[in-house]
């Protein structure tokens, strides 16, 4: 009898222990997708800063109302993610400084996926960017250009949102922009505050701003800066469109 009771207790306790030892044997996700964000008006990669905009994904094969995921777009305008779950996705370049893009549906993402590029039209181009160094004063200037001043979205004619500001971005690393800049330059002193519709910026309607915007900033001797200028419009995220990056070496010890 003792043996029977003990073996019963033993069997039950062994069953209990085993039920806690489930091994999580799902595979890690390893599907990948990559591609470029392209400025439709120039055919080049979209000019952006690291992580300023992202490609939004919805895994529609998993759920009809999934939580969105995002792949940040890199400094050079490309994106890449190698840790997705294989499935069918909807993809959309999301909330960057460009006119709203169309969602691309039914993208099959697996272990080997062809690159998926996206074309977007930026709100503004920053052109004629000059950076002139005089001892420890850096004078930056640029003009603005709007590829489109209005666009049909959802069957409505939407004008270019008001232009907000022009700002300088200085950095000491290879990245430069609103995600990477020296904080001391982000003040009301070093910016051009516009907050007007495009008609006021470009009264003669030639697509270029009438004025050249100039900002003067102090820099320190012996440092090498990466510099660019950016301007933004009043859309959802108010992110910046940028000029190209110039490298300024300030002589000194």
């Amino acid at each position: 009898m003792k043996k029977f009771v003990y073996s019963l207790v033993g069997a039950v306790s062994v069953l209990c222990m085993v039920s806690c030892m489930e091994i999580d044997n799902f595979d890690a996700p390893d599907a990948r997708i990559s591609g470029r964000l392209i400025d439709k008006t120039t055919g080049e990669n979209f000019i952006t800063d690291h992580g300023d905009t992202h490609i939004r994904l919805w895994e529609m094969s998993y759920s009809s109302n999934p939580a969105p995921q995002g792949i940040p777009v890199r400094f050079d305008g490309t994106y890449n993610n190698e840790k997705l779950f294989a499935g069918t996705y909807d993809m959309l370049p999301f909330n960057g400084p460009y006119w709203p893009a169309d969602t691309i549906r039914g993208v099959r993402i697996g272990k080997k996926t062809a690159p998926q590029d996206f074309e977007v039209i930026p709100y503004l181009h920053i052109i004629d960017f000059e950076a002139v160094l005089e001892s420890t004063t850096l004078t930056l200037s640029c003009r603005l250009s709007a590829p489109f001043t209005e666009m049909i979205i959802n069957e409505e004619l939407v004008p270019l949102p008001n232009v907000l500001e022009v700002r300088p971005f200085l950095s000491l690393t290879m990245y430069c922009g609103a995600a990477n800049y020296i904080g001391e330059y982000w003040t009301n002193e070093y910016r051009v505050n516009l907050r007007v519709p495009w008609e006021r910026i470009d009264a003669d309607g030639d697509g270029l701003s009438d004025k050249t915007y100039t900002i003067t900033v102090p820099v320190k001797e012996g440092y090498t800066y990466n510099v660019r200028m950016g301007a933004n419009v009043n859309y959802t995220d108010q992110k910046f469109n940028y000029s190209e990056v110039k490298r300024i070496k300030v002589p000194g010890n």
């Binding site: 759920s63 009809s64 109302n65 939580a67 969105p68 909330n95 959802t236 108010q238």
Partner: peptide, 25 residues
């Protein structure tokens, strides 16, 4: 963050009720 003028619907509630549509922005 101006996106929070309309807060996002809590994810836990969407798990329970998939008919809840998320806020934009």
């Amino acid at each position: 963050n101006r996106a929070n003028y309309h807060q996002q619907i809590p994810g836990g509630q969407i798990n329970r009720n998939p008919n809840l549509i998320r806020n934009d922005g």
